[in-house]
Design a protein around this nucleic acid. Structure first.
Lengths: 139, 139
DNA sequence: GCGACATTTGAGACTGAGTATCAGGAAGGG
DNA sequence: CCCTTCCTGATACTCAGTCTCAAATGTCGC
């Protein structure tokens, strides 16, 4: 299923279906939690897939709206995290201690964020909101 | 005034009042808008202040709660921004096009963010929220 | 199937932010 | 003025992400 969906993604985006790309897409999409670029690079390197290809493919997917790219924990890891989700309406809770990232569904926040941003003349095209704190396990 | 306040800051934090530190603090505090680490390094290098000292001093100030460290614009610059503000209760609007950063005062957001985070078992120790969008000038 | 051709790949060099180290230098208490 | 302690800048380093380019691979017309 995951491989078929990787092909489907590539097909939809009018990109050549190469084994490297399928591997990258499968690796990201098979995770429900966000993955770091670092981890993907390391994991895929074992299969002979180069660093450049991983970043290139991730970039394509982000631009195509398949993945969303979020920041890591402040002060700790500085590499990006990638996760499957529409880039427009998600928010993340990042644990500062263990780095765990949880998605939250906060429709009601959206309206408020929108109104705040508009009040400042901003169009909040993307609600890439990250709340940082300590998760249950870490305090 | 700014120099006096730099000394005051150092005094309050029980740090030696050196010319390098005063220069770094003055440079950051004299700006109302957030400054990038890059810009500070470049500006202070002209006065013979080394990169390491700038980062060290900024770090001290962030840890002491004098400055707040926020992310730059997504996709473009990736270096940190520093700004004078209490780290606990501020939110930022970041323009994706020009990189402008505005502070917003959103007390009402706080309560909602808190409740959302707590609902997920998080203690939202720091509301480092960044809303990304396009500012008035850029759309 | 096959071959031409454009796209993609991976190796490796490069960039630039931030960090670590360390000998020399300054602050400041006595 | 001296001595200890802390601070500084030069420099080398790390590491994420980008760039480059020759070689490999997918695609499509035949």
């Amino acid at each position: 299923m995951s491989l078929r969906s990787a092909s489907a993604v590539l097909d939809r985006l009018d990109l050549r279906s190469t084994s490297a790309r399928r591997a990258v897409i499968t690796a990201v999409l098979s995770r429900s939690q966000p993955v770091t670029a670092r981890e993907l690079v390391a994991r895929l390197a074992r299969r002979g897939i180069g660093r450049a290809t991983v970043f290139r493919t991730l970039d394509l997917l982000v631009r195509a709206g398949v993945l969303s790219r979020i920041h890591g924990i402040e002060g700790g890891e500085r590499c990006f995290h990638y996760t499957r989700c529409a880039p427009e309406h998600h928010h993340h809770l990042v644990c500062r201690a263990c780095g765990k990232v949880e998605e939250i569904d906060a429709r009601r926040l959206d309206a408020r964020l929108d109104s705040v941003a508009r009040g400042h003349g901003f169009r909040a095209l993307s609600h890439a909101v990250e709340i940082q704190g300590l998760c249950q396990d870490c305090h």
